[in-house]
Amino acid sequence: MTRPAPIVTDDNASFWEAARGGKLVAQGCRECGRLRHPPRPMCPECHSIQQETVELAGTGTVYSYAILHHPRNPAFTYPVIAVLVDLDEGVRIVSNLVGVEPADVRIGAPVHVTFETTADDMAVPVFEPDGPPA
């Protein structure tokens, strides 16, 4: 029942290194300041390859969701609540919502980040609702 470890590559290492340390980050362009997620090797705005790792507040709102029932993988607990979170800094992330009943998931709900461990002593950012369930 352990989550699979994320796959670390040259392009995404900064994100997963930060997650392991309990931080949610995005890539920022050192030239034009544009934030981007998922990471990529070049700024699509100005083509700079100079980048920095920007720590995010970890707050945002649920843009969309899906309660996943089937098929099942033994590494996860079902139903899995998959969410798209629009983070306050303007980037979107695929993640999970935890600490909430599936019936209480709402688009637009404010959420904040927390972390769950995975195999290989890594971690992934997941989200929980800000207040008590509506």
Binding site: R3, P4, A5, P6, I7, T9, N12, P38, L68, N73, A75, F76, V80, A82, I93, V94, S95, N96, T118, V124, V126
Partner: peptide
């Protein structure tokens, strides 16, 4: 790779 760790 941005979906798998979340069971998507």
């Amino acid at each position: 790779q941005w979906c798998s760790p979340f069971g998507v």
